[in-house]
Amino acid sequence: MVDPARSVQPPPPPPLTDEEYAKFCEFFYRKTGIQFQDNKKYYVERRLVERMTKTGSSCFRDYFTMVRFQVSGEELQSLVNTMTVNETYFFREDYQFVALVEGMLPELVRGRSPRQPLRLWSVPCSSGEEPYSIALSILERWDQADHWDIEIHASDIDSRILAEAQAGVFGARSLSRVPRQYLEKYFVSLGDGSYRICDDLRQSIDFSLVNIVDPVQAKRFRDVDVIFCRNLLIYFDDVGRRETVETLYEILVPGGYVCLGHSESMSRMTSLFVPRKFGDTIVYQKPQEKAP
């Protein structure tokens, strides 16, 4: 750490060469599954220099060696935190909701008894934009919605954010991608630019406080058809990620799907799932295991 009492600040670390940038990107991708394009160099570099300054590293080489060999993985975690923007709004990464109603759900109901409900789980659900987007997508964009009982479960580890999700009040920024006709049909204007989602919709979603890392808590979910688990696994270390992915696998029905964030990929985590392409997005399917 830089000592604030020192009168002379050390010089800022020199900028990264292309080779250093490439080396960092490959390592970061291998560890986290997060991929940066070449045009992100400025963005990545600024944040790297910030971390280098904070840790008192004089050059990229020293800093990289520290991150690469740190057993606790603490600095890698700090990097993930600075490199990722954790924002949520309605219909974020909408192509995945399109893939849900056009690809995954039609496939899941093929040959299914109408008495068997479809079970969807949003985890972490944060302030609720994701589970409500799932609900709106199903009601407005899936022509078979009325033929099925559909359960939407939404969980988060943070009780305050979960209370916000249940309250269902959203500001203009969060609602910017919600079509006007949805706003009129499913929301109540509160007058100050914010809207509250209608009671019917709020009450149709089952919110619960769950720490997905705790297998006993997670195990209460079972036979789930689709899990939305976006931008969560990047925050775990290697073993924690393995275990959490295995938990998701256990919770899904055979043939069920996991949807990850757009910069994430299962390919850095596990071979348990089969990638499937629906429209423009790749999702991950639990195979029907043949051998017992």
Binding site: P117, R119, A135, I138, L139, A145, D146, H147, W148, D149, I150, E151, I152, H153, L162, Q166, D200, L201, Q203, S204, I205, D206, F207, S208, L209, R220, F221, R222, D223
Partner: peptide, 15 residues
């Protein structure tokens, strides 16, 4: 409505 609220076995509702 197509959406139904149901707690799967053993899942307590919040609160």
């Amino acid at each position: 409505m197509a959406l139904v609220k149901a707690n799967p076995p053993g899942i307590p509702a919040v609160g």
